[in-house]
């Protein structure tokens, strides 16, 4: 729906992602805010934001394959791991620059993702979900048993570098993460409205009907997996250079459910929804971390260190509530708010 009194008079205007002046102002304002915020707040909040951005990249990948193409994938942490380990090996063993390793780890994860997506050509629904779980376990097993990945010991990773400038502090790393996230978001936003994106949506809505319309299912399903895993690989590479180490224990099947939960809470098939979901889930984690000491001091019988378990429980509860009462996710609320703003003098 268009804003009241705004008319598209040329094709450029009709196709623009950023449409109005207020839109531009909001975008530039947000970017300026994100650029300036590390100067104001402490490292803790900067790390919180970096964490959100890296998670957003991985979740965007899942959004493309699950939210847009309808192929459920529970293997996302494994593809993140592939990206992280590729980046670690390239920079630590072969002394490649981070700037080259970042896209290469994305491509490596994408190629592994083609293998991971291969079952989608034959099966779908929960069968496919369980196949991706199997692929997750196989990849993690390979990582812990290969020599080059450091086995169960993991690898240490050098920080990124431009000339003499080393990105070794949290705040410096934040800028890399943020800019990569913005680029990836723009690409995803653009992808889903192209021919490829429309093909994905057709496959999600009904794959048999899509095939009848002449959409090559094999090509587009594998393409969706490739793009999704490319995103995961980039997220993994950033994660590796942010933590400065990689270890197979960082990638668990519980995280796979978290990623699926994030895009459900945010709203399937919506790019801003991905942001909402990730931010909400990360905020829940923070609240639980904050509440846990309180809880264990008030009720001593629960014992210490229940943070991890309570975080999982809280996430499960929120996901249950969202599936029951807001199945379209936060993105739906966002659309309602936007619509009421756009037709402002009138009411829905």
């Amino acid at each position: 729906m268009r804003e009241s009194g705004i008319f598209d008079e040329s094709y450029e205007k009709d196709m623009a992602i950023v449409r109005t002046r207020r839109h531009w102002a909001a975008l530039i304002g947000t970017i300026a805010f994100l650029l300036l915020i590390p100067l104001i707040v402490s490292n803790y909040y900067v790390n919180f934001l970096s964490n959100i951005f890296i998670t957003v990249i991985a979740a965007l990948g899942l959004q493309i394959v699950t939210g847009y193409c309808g192929q459920i994938s529970l293997g996302q942490p494994a593809f993140i791991a592939v990206g992280a380990f590729t980046s670690a090996i390239l920079t630590a063993h072969f002394h490649l620059s981070f700037w080259l390793a970042l896209p290469l780890s994305g491509v490596a994860a994408g190629l592994v993702g083609l293998i991971g997506g291969a079952p989608s050509l034959r099966i779908k629904g929960f069968y496919l979900a369980m196949a991706t779980v199997a692929i997750f376990y196989l990849i993690v097993w390979l990582i812990t048993h290969l020599k080059i990945t450091g086995g169960t010991g993991g690898l240490t990773v050098p920080p990124p570098q431009i000339g003499n400038m080393v990105f070794d502090t949290d705040k410096r790393m934040y800028y890399i993460v943020m800019i990569v996230t913005l680029i990836m978001t723009f690409y995803a936003r653009n992808l889903v409205r192209t021919r490829v994106g429309r093909a994905f949506i057709a496959i999600r809505d009904n794959d048999i009907a899509a095939e009848v319309m002449g959409i090559n299912l094999y090509y587009y399903k594998l393409l969706a997996f490739f793009i999704s895993c490319f995103y995961a690989g980039v997220a993994g590479s950033l994660m590796a250079h942010w933590y400065l180490m990689v270890h197979s224990d960082q990638y668990t099947i519980v995280q796979a459910v978290f990623y699926i939960g994030m895009i459900i809470i945010g709203g399937m098939g919506s790019i801003p929804g991905t942001y909402f979901g990730v931010i909400l889930v990360r905020l829940i984690d923070e609240v639980v971390l904050f509440c846990c000491p309180l809880l264990s001091s008030t009720f001593p019988w629960v014992g210490r260190a229940p943070a991890a378990s309570l975080g999982v429980s809280a996430f499960g509860l929120v996901l249950i509530l969202f599936i029951l009462y807001e199945p379209n996710g936060l993105a739906y609320r966002w659309e309602v708010i936007k619509a009421s703003y756009r037709i402002y003098p009138f009411k829905n």
Binding site: V257, G261, V312, S313, F315
Partner: peptide, 14 residues
Amino acid sequence: TFAIFMFLDGIFQL
């Protein structure tokens, strides 16, 4: 059922 699994999982660990 995944959501239920996660919810009960935390309680089980607790």
